[in-house]
Design a protein around this nucleic acid. Structure first.
Lengths: 104, 104
DNA sequence: GTCAGCGCTACAGAAAATGTAGTAACGGAG
DNA sequence: CTCCGTTACTACATTTTCTGTAGCGCTGAC
């Protein structure tokens, strides 16, 4: 069952997804895991958020099957998580263009 | 100058973008504007957030040149905003697959 | 035993979001 | 002119969320 949370009461997958991704630090965490697994503290230091919130976001991401904890390697994206990341990769390039447009 | 905000102090465009998109309701607002312009109240009713936050998010999105207010039509995506949306459209399809995977 | 590193938690204070009400500006009807 | 409806937007008290700091319990090396 998709967890019904914060503003997404419709049960529509896209709404649940937008709600999940729209939480503070979630996109950033997925981004930080894009290349290699990270340890809890390593992740926390990289994004500069409190351990409380890092932990709860990781819990949500794990429940959403986008992230998993490997005892040896640390936190990493699941197969599903990597699929999602692939959809986001073009953002990197686009953000450069966007930054230039906003800067003017 | 890209606005430095909440946890994105690096000045890297991708971080500023992830920070902006990672705010509550931002992704949802962009999504609601995907097809046609919307009035302030219409938008507010559609997403079910308080006018305070709808207004401040719209202000941020306008500053980021992703959304603009047309006096006749209402709020709508800019050219830049539509480009961003196009990157997000695959999410719709993917979210269905994701929902099935999480449900099991 | 100590020590370091791991994931994770407690808790008080600060910040952000909510919900409700209301403001100010406009246009049209009477 | 007044009144009504609609627009975007704001004020403010309450509620929720996040931060910052400290520390817990566990494991393994020494």
């Amino acid at each position: 069952m998709v967890k019904r949370v914060r503003g997404s009461k419709t049960g529509r997958p896209i709404m649940a997804l937008l709600d999940l991704l729209g939480r503070r630090w979630v996109l950033r965490i997925v981004w930080e895991l894009r290349e290699e697994p990270r340890r809890f503290r390593e992740l926390q230091d990289a994004i500069g958020a409190s351990p409380t919130i890092v932990n709860s976001r990781l819990a949500e991401l794990r429940e959403a099957k986008l992230v998993e904890l490997d005892a040896d390697a640390g936190y990493r994206l699941t197969v599903l998580g990597r699929e999602l990341l692939r959809l986001f990769l073009p953002l990197h390039l686009w953000s450069e263009k966007w930054a230039k447009a906003v800067a003017t």
